[in-house]
Design a protein around this nucleic acid. Structure first.
Lengths: 227, 227
DNA sequence: CGGTAATTGTCTAATATTGAACAGAAGGCC
DNA sequence: GGCCTTCTGTTCAATATTAGACAATTACCG
């Protein structure tokens, strides 16, 4: 059912190498936890690559409701929206941890790409994967209920952020119900209830430090069973 | 509020020219109305450019519910998902009218791109716009109600498919409530009700031939007023 | 350490939404 | 013209969801 999108890990390595090699004076910036890299509405024609840390991308709706659009981790790239003519950021990028980023002007980035076919192909693949990913999110929002979406979101978060053990995944990072509600697209109280339920069913656990432990297979099985 | 994504019209022209010039033997296919170009699950590593006609892209959810992801018209490109490693189509492409398409193998397309910087930049812009567009759809699905989404969808459909008159847009193409429900992500009866309401408020009209006439400004104003 | 802020677990009533049904209207086809 | 199919308008009860509220708990900061 839910097709895992293969990560373009190769591209990430290539890109980081290429940046280091090609131009040692590319600027590196440090963004402390909870600080913003850019905000919706900013004029910012930069592309960012994560050296360390985690960045969350979120958009605000008209009524001020926040939507979490994605999380980027080491090796990931973000800010690619500046490739479009629209010079304005549509989303806000916030550091979830102290992060170190490479920052490349869009123009420069384009030069790299046209000078290196391998890099170019990797980047195109990266964009195509983003599109496929978003497409799946749209289908999910249109067709499945919040409980299922929450389950799926937990599995994906685990994949992205978690430490993998044989049959469990441990996310060593506290994720509030509020944040989950912004990922899933529902209200906080509902997330509380669902999480409660998942815990009762033995699909997830909370560690002593309040880290989330996901029982991968059991949760996946549960999701396959429910409508 | 709702930011119109600027179309990369330049790129479309460039692309068509480039294809004609570079390789006159690129295959051209005809797809009759209601026929499919490809289906979800297909192995199809082609990129398509529309010479004439209209193509709708739709995905099926697990329970078989259909979601309309987008409509492509003359000059548009689709099938770019084959750039990702995943060789499988996630969506189905269906001709809404008799259509004529250029079909380029993904590999060949990549060669064009690396040989022509202008084309490359245009294509990257095109992808970035797709991502921004989808991002906006996600935000809308997460935060606003179906009535508003319907209104917005009508305005966008008008922009994409309609004939523009000073204060109205006329879509010379019959769009069923069923299709609208698959765009908006709700049920058919609700679309009926909302359309009824919009008509009563003088925001839209139906022509004698059952074509949709959108009173652009009034509809936009209405949307700006409601929550 | 103490106090403030953030987080969670719970409840509620009000609303939005679904899914299924059915009759009438219109369209397309032979 | 007549039949069959698709589309529309309209119900309705069942369900899902929201938007508050509140207390209890836990983090965080100085």
């Amino acid at each position: 059912m839910s097709e895992p999108i293969p990560p373009s890990d190769l591209f990430k390595e290539q890109l980081l190498n290429s940046l280091r090699r090609a131009n040692p004076r590319i600027s590196t910036i440090r963004v402390p936890k909870h600080n913003r890299v850019y905000s919706a509405g900013d004029q910012d024609k930069m592309i960012y690559i994560i050296e360390s840390g985690q960045i969350k991308l979120a958009a605000l709706s008209r009524e001020g409701r926040e939507c979490l659009l994605g999380i980027r981790i080491v090796g990931d790239l973000f800010g690619e929206s500046c490739l479009s003519e629209l010079g304005t950021r549509l989303e806000t990028a916030t550091a979830m941890e102290n992060s170190i980023l490479k920052r490349v002007p869009c123009e420069t980035f384009l030069k790299y790409l046209s000078s290196d076919t391998l890099l170019l192909n990797g980047f195109l693949q990266y964009l195509a994967e983003r599109i496929a990913e978003q497409q799946q999110v749209i289908v999910d929002l249109m067709t499945i209920n919040s409980e299922y979406r929450l389950g799926k979101a937990l599995l994906q978060l685990g994949d992205k952020l978690g430490k993998k053990y044989p049959s469990t995944i441990r996310i060593e990072h506290r994720i509030s119900h509020e944040e989950l509600s912004q990922i899933v697209g529902t209200t906080r109280p509902r997330i509380s209830e669902f999480m409660q339920k998942f815990r009762a069913l033995g699909l997830i656990e909370m560690s002593a430090e309040h880290f989330l432990i996901i029982k991968k297979n059991r949760l996946a099985d549960y999701l396959a069973r429910v409508t």
